[in-house]
Design a protein around this nucleic acid. Structure first.
Lengths: 340, 340
DNA sequence: CTGAAAGCGCTAACAG
DNA sequence: CTGTTAGCGCTTTCAG
């Protein structure tokens, strides 16, 4: 296919008997150019569907009008809503969005970040993967020297801006909600001990127990993982053991879903035999059998906020007028799964 | 932040006392360069974390190693799964993925496509928006002169490759499934009459009725839209009218969810009073009250297939060895919502 | 107000 | 096997 057909400044200039630089300036509405010339140039540009070559322009100006979004997975209600929020802002600001999925693998996260060393993007939004033995790889973000904003799964030790929800408070509230429903043996399910969201949610859980004089039993803290089948098995074993809880607080949605599946399989009744609450952005939470009590994160808003902070950093880098931490509150929505 | 720090070919060349082109060739493993030189060059490049400037390279080679994905929305199970499939292939092929959301608005779709006129991407994957009075705007895709592959929501009249599911057959099967459950007044719910998926699914519905000697009643074909609240109201009015059906075939997931909400609100029992089946990729279909019978599309595979066709077109444009139409089968999964 | 010229970083002839 | 050179299309001084 013939790329030579693409209109460029040269074509326009020749057609109009103007110089390339005049055309360029006219299109960018420079004060140096007369109104009449501008009109003529723009008319022809429109007619020929001129679109500036983004690479030439980026090469010259050293900015790409593009941001990268690095997330563990996309078929996940939280992340797809967050991306939606990010896209809305990006499209408003005239930025393009490159999306990268790490599939929870450190090696992908590192190589993705490394590929960003070259100016391809003006900024990065990242929610880190769960495979995070040490976070040393994130030092590469420091080196690439562009604005970075973490959202949801943040790297606490980093100095970049972070947008999260109130994980600790929500963990606390969820646990107290179960305690109010007279639960005594409340389990905490999580998938990755490396994530700060896990730890904060768990600290909320632990402190809520403590405040209510319920002894903390480490055997009720159950580590699952990102593999659905494995998590299913872990939850099943747990619920069939003599260590069986009377309530489950799932720190992530997929573990609540696993719990529902297991309960159905081994005939545990929710909420009679087991109460369940979960962090979740499931749109069908209220239609489940039984309706699932959730802590619903403002996923869309987290994306939007993270993006707008990023753009503030990108567009006026010197002025430090952006917050370096934003916490957006989650909402506890009690439903039948925690009815007493 | 100091962009001058970024390593480029010049830096490497100077450091090694070689010419820029030698370094360039060495890095690209050209046969023209000696092994020893290659090693030296690569070692230094690694050490200095050299990443080629993508804009310079794209400008010169007239290809971006980037594709665009244009979809109506992302917080939708079908699309997020499809994107997942696309990303897997793209990452394998070393391509970057730019995502654009049209939010079902024609004006966004057009302007997005127009912005792609300049070589920013080497190919486009698109699922068209529902606001598609006439599809004339898609002629812009012809003009930009790069490979395009439609997936799911295709523009039938176009000559570009299309990847879909078997919408007609699935519509037929879903309807027969309801007929087997002794339904007589089967309603068809849809959101946009402009989409070919709507029409194909509806034709399947109509022909299944016909084959089973059930008269087609146009009053049972209900047009909803993309606004959840409005659709909720439409479905509610419909179910409260004297035109009330004994079964609903929802051509898209969100209308099944709306139906569930309405039934709960006005105390219609599923499946006793109303049977429901829907195209859906809901992971929680089996956990709903009652579990929802679905026609599940191979969303991930559709994305993967569309992407791999696109890359075949991009990488060997002359050889027409790619299919121009791929149909991946959906699966009907009967659950309680259609129990007889 | 308009134009000439340099150069962003890389690739690809073409010479040597 | 290595180097020189000429751009890709655009922006941006700087001259006129």
């Amino acid at each position: 296919m013939d790329k030579s057909k693409q209109t460029n400044l040269k074509t326009l200039a020749k057609e109009l008997n103007l110089s390339i630089s005049t055309v360029s300036k006219a299109l960018r509405d420079s004060y140096e150019i007369g109104q009449e010339t501008k009109n003529k140039v723009k008319a022809l540009a429109d007619k020929l569907n001129y679109e500036p070559n983004p690479f030439a322009s980026s090469l010259r100006r050293k900015q790409s009008k593009t941001i990268a979004v690095i997330i563990p997975e996309i078929s996940n209600n939280f992340f797809s809503l967050a991306i939606d929020g990010i896209q809305v802002i990006a499209q408003e600001m005239g930025y393009h969005v490159l999306t990268y999925l790490t599939h929870e693998a450190l090696v992908n996260e590192i190589s993705t970040i490394n590929h960003l060393r070259n100016g391809r993007v003006d900024g990065v939004l990242i929610s880190i993967c769960s495979e995070n033995g040490n976070n040393s790889h994130l030092s590469v973000l420091d080196e690439i020297d562009i604005p970075v904003v973490f959202f949801d799964r943040v790297y606490e030790a980093s100095s970049f801006a972070k947008v999260t929800t109130d994980d600790y408070e929500s963990g606390f509230k969820a646990t107290e909600h179960l305690i109010e429903a007279k639960c005594k043996r409340i389990a905490f399910l999580f998938a990755s001990k490396h994530l700060s969201i896990t730890n904060k949610r768990m600290n909320g859980y632990i402190n809520a127990l403590e405040k209510n004089n319920i002894p903390f039993d480490p055997r009720l803290v159950v580590e699952c993982n990102n593999d659905n089948d494995q998590s299913l098995q872990i939850v099943k074993d747990f619920l069939l053991s003599d260590n069986r809880p009377d309530a489950i607080f799932a720190s992530i949605e997929k573990l609540a879903i696993a719990t529902y599946h297991v309960c159905r399989e081994i005939n545990i009744r929710i909420p009679q035999d087991l109460k369940v609450i979960s962090f979740s952005n499931l749109r069908t939470a209220s239609l489940l059998a039984p309706p699932l009590s959730t802590i619903t994160q403002p996923a869309f808003e987290i994306g939007r906020e993270a993006a707008s902070i990023l753009f503030r950093q990108i567009e006026k880098r010197d002025l430090k007028d952006y917050p370096d931490r934003v916490v957006l509150k989650s909402t506890l929505i009690p439903r039948e799964s925690t009815f007493f």
